[in-house]
Design a protein around this nucleic acid. Structure first.
Lengths: 176, 176
DNA sequence: TAATACGTTTACTACGTATTAAACGTCATT
DNA sequence: AATGACGTTTAATACGTAGTAAACGTATTA
């Protein structure tokens, strides 16, 4: 690293995305790796990543798979080089799509299905004030889930520019 | 428990919200406790919660604080009873507000600040292709953060009915 | 065929967090 | 004052996951 400021800047981003990634349940390592790749002008080898993060190869090998599966990182090859290179997907919109679809949505669906199951159990229960109360609560929860589902659906359908102008529209309307 | 189906339904919801809660980084316990309270027609004592989840009082005492701080649970008292009772906040809209504000937003802001810091470090760096590339990347990341921030802002500003009708509008437009 | 350079897998260790049991402080009741 | 019923705190433990080092498989080169 010739430029001190540049490497400091990289370290700072590594810290930022590591935090973020851990917070969202992806593991600190995954975010840190993404940060390294995101700032690198050209694809990096597995070993290069391991060096810049001071961890072992095996560690990277496992973590990189998560990132690949989520569409946050791609592999590439160079002719005459047996090594595998990785580069970051830089289109956050695309990343948001795949992460929501592959990670959040399944979890959401699972939960939704369980609420439905719970509701069906209540249908079979003896009518009683307790049952009726629980039933009302579950239906209310279900409605909220449906709203959330709809919001996400919309967010993934519109184009980013559309979304951006929508947001601006709202903010203008609110500020007067 | 007089009604077998009712308690099965409760257990199912406990499982669902426990999963969900752990997934979102709140800890399994917190979600399970919320589920118990959410389905209970009247406030429950600390010990009652501990019994229904088969854990110790101390455990509940700690976890309940999280839920209180996030506005997901409230304390209440009964005259002539020294015990503390807890009841679930059932307005998910309100919960969404406070969770986003108290939990997600600070984390987001922290990350945003670090990206900015990183960007400022780059300003001071020697001009070079690597620096310029990194700078472009960070600016792009910043723009995405701003968009996200705006979306959340809007989502928290509009009333739930407004949001709901917006979603419906979009879906109709999309389906023709 | 031997030797080297990879990436992956595996068994082990280290670490942080969740959970418990017990001690503690407080308040009401006797 | 003494006792008992609370909720909270604390120290110890259990548990799951993150991370390492080394073995492994495979392809490439000599």
């Amino acid at each position: 690293m010739s430029d001190e400021q540049l490497s400091k800047a990289t370290e700072t981003l590594i810290g930022a995305l590591g935090r973020q990634s851990a917070f969202w349940g992806l593991g600190r390592m995954a975010g840190e790796m993404y940060a390294v790749l995101y700032l690198s002008p050209e694809p990096l080898s597995l070993e290069a990543i391991a060096n810049s993060l001071q961890v072992t190869k095996g560690n990277i090998s496992i973590a990189i798979r998560q990132l690949e599966q989520l569409g946050m990182v791609r592999r590439s090859w160079r002719m005459g080089d047996r090594r595998v290179f990785f580069e970051a997907e830089t289109d956050f919109w695309r990343i948001a799509h795949s992460v929501l679809g592959l990670r959040q949505k399944p979890e959401f669906d699972q939960s939704f299905a369980l609420v439905e199951e719970s509701l069906q159990l209540l249908e079979q229960a003896e009518p009683s004030p307790e049952r009726d109360y629980a039933k009302a609560r579950l239906e209310s929860l279900q409605e909220f889930y449906r709203l959330l589902d709809g919001v996400v659906e919309v967010a993934l359908t519109v184009k980013p520019e559309e979304l951006k102008s929508m947001v601006e529209m709202f903010n203008e309307a609110r500020n007067k």
